[in-house]
């Protein structure tokens, strides 16, 4: 397996030295994100997030299956991540690296275990039929802070997604095509977002947001906060690294909330814009047979 390319000693020394003077290589403030952009595909449930040079594509799909025997009333919701060799030659197909495992774990904890998607609403016939919703996350380009970008992509894709409408009459399940009935959005409860802090220095004295790939390779530790715009924390992951002062972590959490509100605003705005773009002027306008010309 090819090894990851390491930055040179000169770069490592410079990044840490410059950070002591609160200076980042790309000229950002310590708590500033790179430009975050969110676009949706032609189909429902495809979201692409760019964060500087990092690019993540998420795609949500749904299919009918049998629910798990121990949870007959719940639908199935899975998130699968893929870091392909297109991202960097050190990633291989079917051989998850530590980065990939941690990324998928964090997304699971943030989106699935925080109950963002109401899985009970995915059940059609108890113990017999349910929807299995699956989100595939593809990392197209890796320049640091995959977690935050992937989380935005997953949440946006799920909120953008429409599943086929279904009904049960006299014990017969009918799934309607989009032509018969308008597909329905998923029952979405709240939108959690990740905010990752990177710590530098012996005691984690310098904390910065949205680290680039170079900064990630140099950092002494990191901590990911997942919360929604109401300030409800879904999870905090600090996987090793230098110990950080508790007060500093509390400060990080409060700054994270303002960032989450900004991200949340952006996603809401983009979703509203997309809805407007797709809206042809209501049901009657769509039924009209006359030609535009």
């Amino acid at each position: 397996m090819p090894r990851e390319h390491e930055p040179s000693l000169n770069e490592k020394q410079f990044v840490t030295q410059a950070l002591q003077e609160n200076l980042r290589l790309d000229g950002r403030e310590l708590d500033q994100y790179r430009p975050l952009e969110l676009t949706f595909g032609d189909q429902h449930g495809v979201a692409e997030v760019t964060l500087g040079k990092t690019k993540v594509l998420a795609r949500a799909t749904a299919e009918l299956t049998v629910p798990y025997p121990d949870r007959p009333l719940d639908g199935i919701f899975t998130i699968s991540t893929e870091l392909s060799p297109m991202t960097a030659p050190s990633f291989e197909v079917n051989r998850p690296t530590e980065t990939e495992v941690l990324l998928s774990r964090l997304l699971e904890k943030t989106v699935r275990r925080s109950g963002a998607l109401d899985t009970e609403s995915l059940c059609l016939v108890a113990g017999k039929q349910c929807w299995s919703v699956r989100v595939d996350v593809h990392v197209l380009s890796h320049d640091g802070n995959l977690t935050d970008a992937a989380c935005v992509a997953v949440v946006a894709a799920l909120r953008h997604f429409r599943r086929p409408d279904a009904s049960i009459a006299q014990g017969v399940l009918t799934v309607y095509t989009p032509a018969e009935r308008e597909p329905v959005p998923l029952s979405w409860l709240h939108s959690p977002y990740c905010v990752t802090w990177s710590f530098f220095g012996d005691e984690g004295a310098t904390a910065l947001l949205d680290a680039t790939w170079l900064e990630e390779q140099v950092r002494a530790g990191s901590c990911t906060f997942s919360m929604n715009q109401h300030g409800e924390i879904c999870q905090i992951a600090k996987l090793g690294g230098v110990p950080v002062d508790a007060v500093a972590l509390l400060q990080c959490a409060s700054v994270s909330l303002t960032r989450v509100k900004e991200i949340s605003d952006l996603v809401d705005r983009r979703l509203a814009e997309d809805l407007k773009r797709r809206d042809k002027g209501g049901f009657m306008a769509e039924l009209r047979a006359e030609n535009d010309r």
Partner: peptide, 16 residues
């Protein structure tokens, strides 16, 4: 390209 200077600010400006 390697950029060297005593002042980190200069390095950042030149690199960017």
């Amino acid at each position: 390209v390697w950029v060297g200077s005593e002042s980190p600010k200069t390095v950042v400006i030149v690199g960017r």
